[in-house]
Nucleic acid binder design. Structure first.
Lengths: 244, 244
DNA sequence: TCCACCATATTGTATATACATAATAGGTTT
DNA sequence: AAACCTATTATGTATATACAATATGGTGGA
């Protein structure tokens, strides 16, 4: 044998990775209908059983939806977890029975400052800076400060975030992202306290989330909630580390 | 057809559920060596391929470990997520380079109060109440208040939590639990502030976690961290809802 | 025309079979 | 006795085959 390859990838692992990449990179968008099992098997040069194993696994991972006779299509991305679910603050506000409104305070397309560079972990970038307030029945609910990477969010520069909050737009535009949360309790500074209509120094819950797709930063956001009015809920069950 | 059964369980789904139950309920403890594939297949009355599918799936879910020739054994439970990982506060403290110590303040075996009943969602129970302080280099790090369900944690009444914190003990004793977190920023009350050596009204991060195994409550814990000194980190990636 | 029924397409599950791979156990040689 | 080789055991992967389940679309009859 002249096979030097040090890593052995099984056929179906290879195919799983290939299809997952197409979905994550958006080449196969949510709703896209895949070729039928037998055709895919032929294209990849494997048997239907092998292809079935691949598609079954990707379905279990949540990337695909399959129905008999109806074929296989790329799934809509789901809320990623209980903590992630709060990303759509409109839903959260409306679920508690209040009217939701987003007020944009600032918008700036600029070169990344040193502080921005730290946040996004990338240099020499142009960033879109957004700042606004989520309101519940005319009471401040959450203060949002956000950086967006325009090339990774096509169309973001044309969006009017005076109407729709950037978080909600991004959530539905950039599927399959991974996010890192940092959650802290901090005393709210005077300017923030004024916006949130609380006393300076009161307890606030700060959630900082940086979001990536395939290793590239997409957005960085800081959400500041007034103290005890807000809580995060998260459920966890044991699960294996993804073999991918 | 006289088949009335409304839900159809496939053979391998049925077997997966059966084995998972045995593991979660502790009948097959971590490290337990399962019969070999062919024997299991015979016991369940299916082909080896079907049995292999079952064991492969459970391995992906993290319940089993398999090595060629060495057989199949029940896996050790893992840290359940980034947020879950902080459960072992000792690790967290030591990771930041400080000496860890746990000081038990109170221990009480009592009938559940009305407040306890709300917390654990079960009535007419006897509960073990524990309260203590996690220390980092003789500075208060986290205040812990805990309820434990003794029947679900065999041996808990004999443990001396003056030495080892109950969280760490439970984490290694009750594998495969599911947990629900509630995270809030609150002003710290006077008695708590005194214990944590901060000023009353300062911001604190309160994490309340209730833990279950198979629908039965195991423990409820409230962790109070002094304000900005502490942060939670959580990573999230898209994933499917567990079909189980 | 409309409805019942059937043919068809596509995924879902199960089996038998075959060969590959990894690690142990035991025997043979030096 | 130590080193090496080989047989054996158990899992890992791939294929061909078969039949079941489900939704669609078309066909024929009242």
């Amino acid at each position: 044998m002249t096979d030097i390859s040090p890593k052995i990838a099984t056929r179906h692992d290879h195919i799983i990775g290939d299809i997952r990449t197409r979905i994550i990179e958006g080449q196969w968008a949510p709703g896209f209908q895949l070729p039928i099992e037998t055709d895919l098997a032929a294209q990849y040069g494997v048997s239907r059983m092998t292809m079935n194993k691949v598609l079954t696994q990707l379905t279990r991972e949540g990337f695909l939806l399959r129905r008999k006779k109806m074929g296989t299509r790329v799934a809509q991305p789901r809320a990623q977890s209980a903590v992630m679910a709060i990303a759509d603050i409109r839903d959260e506000v409306e679920a508690s029975g209040h009217a939701y409104r987003f007020v944009l305070h600032a918008r700036d397309l600029r070169a990344a400052t040193d502080e921005d560079t730290l946040r996004i972990g990338a240099e020499d970038q142009q960033v879109l800076w957004l700042e606004g307030l989520h309101m519940a029945d005319d009471a401040p609910f959450c203060l949002e400060s956000r950086l967006v990477n325009p090339p990774m969010a096509p169309g973001v520069l044309e969006q009017d975030f005076g109407i729709r909050a950037p978080g909600a737009w991004l959530l539905h535009t950039i599927p399959w992202s991974t996010a890192r949360h940092r959650i802290r309790a901090i005393p709210v500074t005077a300017p923030d306290a004024k916006l949130l209509r609380i006393a300076p120094g009161d307890a606030g819950l700060e959630v900082v989330r940086s979001t990536q797709v395939g290793g590239t930063w997409v957005t960085w956001v800081r959400l500041l909630y007034p103290g005890a009015d807000h809580q995060l809920i998260a459920e966890f069950a044991p699960r294996a580390v993804d073999p991918a």
